[in-house]
Amino acid sequence: MTRFLAIGPAGEVPVSAAGEPLYFPAPPHPGPLHTVAVSPDLIALGVSAEAAAALAEAAGGRLEDPRHFGRDREVSRAVALLRHRGQISFDPVDGTPVTFAADGVVAVGGQGRRIFPRVDPAVIGLVELAGQERILLARNANRGQYFSLIAGYVDAGENLEEAFIREVREETGRRISGVTYWGSQPWAPSGSLMVGFTALTRDEHPVGRTDGELVEIRWVSRPELGGLPLARPGSIAHAMITEWRNAR
């Protein structure tokens, strides 16, 4: 049986009072702005903000930020595909208007060139101060309401490890070593694939200038984590911090 999932223009997801995504047996009214096939039995519908809010209200639920579903592959894929569907109107190579295949996923330009959903690789990681059981957390200038791990996008010509080393140096002024892969997570709100690492540093204090992207950087011990606003559940940052806190 085919299920339908409505998603608002900013990726907002109507959920039940229990916080579960609302799936429908038929497309809800009014009709969607965009439609994409997420899987053989799931169709995602891009709807207006007003329609998304009305669906949530009718079910006694609410609208949930797409970042809440970072560990939910199905919802993350739906948000990412609808984001692509709404952003691509012209072929970036020749400027011709695009049409979409029947699944709503692949765009086709005037010369027949296929345009697939873009995924931007990004790195994020847990940096521990050698021998001291403290990790490096920071507040971003654009998201200063909580502390998270150091992260950034991969630059042209870099591998993932090089990107993480560079981001830590640029943002915090610290040098790291022992970079080790931890895991990965799709991050649909920004069209990213977050690749997580762990690393060590002996630089308690910065040894170079920083780029100003972070408004506060601090070393945090396990007992101190409970008193800080942290990256929300569902994010790879939250999972990495939680794993470190519980590893005693």
Score class of each variant (00 low, 15 high):
Gly31Glu: 13
Leu42Pro: 02
Ala54Gln: 12
Gly31Thr: 07
Ala49Gln: 08
Phe24Thr: 01
Ala58Gly: 15
Glu50Val: 07
Ala52Tyr: 01
Ala53Gly: 11
Val36Gln: 08
Ala56Asn: 02
Ala49Arg: 06
Ala26Pro: 06
Gly61Asp: 14
Ala58His: 12
Leu55Met: 07
Pro30Ile: 05
Ile43Leu: 14
Leu42Glu: 02
Ala26Asp: 13
Pro28His: 03
Glu57Met: 00
Arg62Gly: 10
Pro32Trp: 08
Asp41Ile: 13
Thr35Pro: 00
Leu22Ile: 14
Pro27Lys: 01
His29Asp: 14
Ala54Cys: 10
Glu50Ala: 14
Ala58Phe: 08
Ala52Pro: 05
Arg62Tyr: 04
Pro27Gly: 04
Ala53His: 03
Pro40Arg: 10
Leu22Met: 09
Glu50His: 03
Tyr23Gly: 11
Gly31Lys: 06
Phe24Ala: 11
Leu22Asp: 08
His34Ala: 15
Asp41Tyr: 06
Ala49Glu: 11
Thr35Val: 13
Gly60Asp: 08
Leu33Glu: 15
Ala59Lys: 10
Val47Gln: 12
Gly31Cys: 07
Val47Phe: 09
Gly31His: 09
Asp41Asn: 15
Ser48Pro: 14
Leu22Pro: 07
Pro25Phe: 05
Ala37Cys: 01
Pro30His: 06
Thr35Asp: 03
Tyr23Thr: 11
Gly31Asn: 06
Arg62Asp: 11
Ala52Phe: 02
Val36Pro: 07
Phe24His: 08
Leu33Gly: 13
Leu33Met: 13
Ala52Ser: 05
Phe24Glu: 10
His34Asn: 14
Pro28Asn: 06
Ala54Met: 08
Arg62His: 10
Ile43Ser: 11
Ala52His: 02
Thr35Ile: 09
Val36His: 06
Ser48Phe: 12
Glu57Gln: 03
Gly46Tyr: 00
Asp41His: 14
Glu50Ile: 03
Asp41Trp: 08
Ala44Ile: 10
Ala26Phe: 11
Pro28Ser: 07
Pro21Ile: 04
Ile43Lys: 10
His29Ala: 15
Gly61Gln: 13
Ala58Thr: 15
Ala54Tyr: 01
Val38Cys: 12
Leu42Tyr: 01
Ala37Ile: 00
His29Ile: 08
Ser39Pro: 03
Val47Ile: 13
Gly60Phe: 06
Pro40Lys: 09
Pro21Leu: 04
Ala52Trp: 01
Leu55Ile: 05
Ala58Val: 12
Gly61Met: 14
Leu63Tyr: 00
Ala26Gly: 10
Gly61Thr: 13
His29Val: 13
Phe24Ile: 00
Pro40Asp: 12
Ala37Ser: 01
His29Lys: 10
Leu63Pro: 00
Ala58Arg: 15
Ala56Ile: 03
Pro40Ile: 12
Val38His: 09
Val38Thr: 13
Tyr23Asp: 11
Gly61Ser: 15
Val38Gly: 13
Pro28Arg: 04
Phe24Arg: 06
His34Ile: 11
Pro40His: 09
Glu57Arg: 01
Gly31Pro: 13
Leu33His: 08
Ala56Glu: 04
Leu33Arg: 13
Ala44Phe: 05
Leu55Asp: 05
Ala54Lys: 08
Val38Phe: 07
Ala58Cys: 12
Leu42Cys: 06
Pro28Ile: 04
His29Trp: 09
Pro27Phe: 01
Thr35Phe: 00
Pro21Thr: 04
Gly61Phe: 12
Ala56Thr: 03
Ala56Val: 02
Arg62Pro: 02
Ala56Phe: 02
Pro21Asp: 07
Ala53Asp: 08
Gly60Trp: 05
